[in-house]
């Protein structure tokens, strides 16, 4: 993977270093995300994988001491350039969080809100239905659209959060450990949904669950910590290669559970 063909990738990072104050949380990340594939980021706690994920849609901007060096390219454009509006970035690159966090509003409103604030002009009812169908939730909630999003089960709530993200029509969906609060069946449903969504969207998922990365992703990036506690990317490749025949001993140790 070379640096020349930058429009070929959904996201491309070049020499990215991420800091919290003086602490370098992540160093020298060069990563190319393949469009319409699922890329998993795995690694031990504190290796900066969530920090990297959140830098892809500038969610780290809310941490006052956050600072970044390098470039993160989206359609060949550095999303950290001076003239870039982070709000626009987040409309194009959506996010699903660790804990299902639907708004304390109705199911309908949860989905419609994002589209509405972004100036959606079409038929909201149709959008809500289509999005809920895409998120494999429509059949379960179609009779209860007025009910609160919080009345759903954990797995349904997470799918509602995915639907909510889809309604804004992003190109990329970032998922930050989306199943860590869910039971195994709900987890598998989300994984199937991710597979379905990857026909249209580029998905990047951070997960603690190696089996999940192995099951659900096409590409896997392994991050670990250096001696100075800065996270770095050790290995990046197709998921089947990483999980059957990793090239780096650190990846091997982590994947076989012999880390540390």
């Amino acid at each position: 993977m070379t640096h020349e063909t930058n429009n070929h990738y959904a996201i491309e990072t070049r020499g990215v270093n991420l800091y919290y104050g003086n602490f370098r949380a992540v160093k020298d990340v060069d990563l190319q995300i393949v469009p319409q594939k699922i890329t998993a980021i795995i690694g031990p706690s504190g290796c900066g994988k969530s920090t990297v994920l959140r830098s892809f849609n500038r969610m780290n901007d809310f941490v006052p001491s956050f600072r970044m060096e390098g470039e993160i390219l989206f359609h060949g454009q550095n999303i950290y350039a001076e003239d870039v509006d982070p709000v626009m970035v987040r409309q194009r690159i959506g996010m699903v969080f660790q804990k299902p966090n639907p708004f304390p509003k109705s199911i309908y409103e949860n989905v419609a809100w994002g589209a509405r604030i972004n100036g959606y002009k079409g038929n909201l009812d149709e959008l809500v239905e289509q999005t809920l169908r895409d998120a494999a939730l429509w059949d379960e909630v179609k009779d209860n659209l007025k009910k609160s999003g919080l009345s759903l089960s954990g797995g349904q709530q997470q799918r509602l959060c995915i639907a909510r993200a889809l309604a804004v029509k992003p190109e990329i969906i970032l998922m930050d450990e989306p199943c860590s609060a869910l039971d195994p069946i709900a987890t598998l449903k989300i994984e199937e949904l991710m597979r379905e969504l990857s026909r249209q969207y580029t998905i990047i998922i951070v997960t603690h669950n190696m089996q999940q990365a192995a099951r659900a992703s096409d590409y896997t990036a392994f991050f670990t910590m250096d001696d100075d506690r800065a996270g770095l990317m050790v290995e990046y490749g197709e998921t089947h290669q990483i999980f059957t025949n990793p090239r780096d001993q650190r990846t091997e140790d982590y994947i076989t559970g012999r880390f540390g």
């Binding site: 809310f62 966090n101 994002g114 909510r164």
Partner: peptide, 23 residues
């Protein structure tokens, strides 16, 4: 107000003011 709610709002491309006013 849970931080997760703010993040959800920002994650959908809401501005700071939209987040404050709506959530």
């Amino acid at each position: 107000v849970p931080a997760s709610l703010r993040q959800a709002s920002y994650g959908l491309g809401a501005t700071r003011w939209q987040t404050i006013w709506h959530h």
